[in-house]
């Protein structure tokens, strides 16, 4: 686009508008970082917690949560500071996702560190899965990515179903919910992002 005053006819104006709007939407898709980070951390914490309850019993069985969740918060914060702030463009979807992520973290930490202390661990798992379900469902809708929406629905189903499951198995339901809701869709989202990036470069 060499000159600003180049005359435009009406058809060319509409074509230019369409081209620019489509172009603005390219390259702003999500790389799945947060889904993979939180998916793997929660999966590891849940399995670690289960192992320390049933395989190597210890009173410190909550330790994987106490270590991995704040670690996730710190890594998310650093990633947000280092990578997200360097984005050349911020879409309306990005803005919505920022608020959803903030609400998710506040709710998650409230459940992990206040609800669990006040109500006991076993009662908190369904709350955790409901919170995950909301984040996944909203994110899937905003990003127009169905695997995340299905992941959200699986988390809702697991949250409700776990109410009828003995607390002994509840943590395994959580691990499954995270695998189906975060880890698998997270990898699919990352693959989609890499594909789009590759196509844009070709």
């Amino acid at each position: 686009m060499d000159t600003d005053e180049k005359p435009l006819n009406e058809q060319a104006s509409l074509a230019l508008i369409n081209r620019m709007i489509n172009s603005a939407q390219q390259g702003v898709s999500d790389n799945g970082f947060y889904f993979l980070l939180w998916g793997w951390l929660v999966f590891a914490a849940a399995m670690g917690n289960w192992t320390l309850i049933h395989v190597f019993p210890t009173e410190l069985n909550w330790l994987p949560w106490a270590i991995l969740m704040p670690l996730g918060g710190i890594v998310s914060g650093i990633y947000g500071w280092k990578v997200e702030r360097k984005k050349k463009v911020k879409t309306y979807a990005d803005e919505v996702m920022d608020y959803v992520a903030a609400a998710f973290l506040i709710a998650l930490f409230s459940v992990l560190f206040v609800f669990s202390w006040k109500l006991g661990w076993a009662t908190t798992y369904p709350f955790i899965m409901i919170i995950y379900g909301i984040w996944l469902f909203v994110s899937g809708g905003v990003l127009k990515f169905r695997p995340l929406i299905y992941g959200g629905l699986i988390n809702f189903a697991c949250a409700i179903g776990s109410l009828w499951i003995h607390s002994y198995h509840m943590i395994l339901v959580l691990a499954f919910a995270v695998l189906a809701g975060y880890i698998i869709p997270g990898h699919l989202l990352k693959a989609k992002y890499n594909r789009e990036k590759h196509n844009a470069a070709v």
Binding site: L16, M20, A24, Q25, V28, K90, T91, Y92
Partner: peptide, 8 residues
């Protein structure tokens, strides 16, 4: 046209 589609 670019700015109408994004926040900033």
């Amino acid at each position: 046209s670019l700015l109408i589609s994004v926040r900033e």
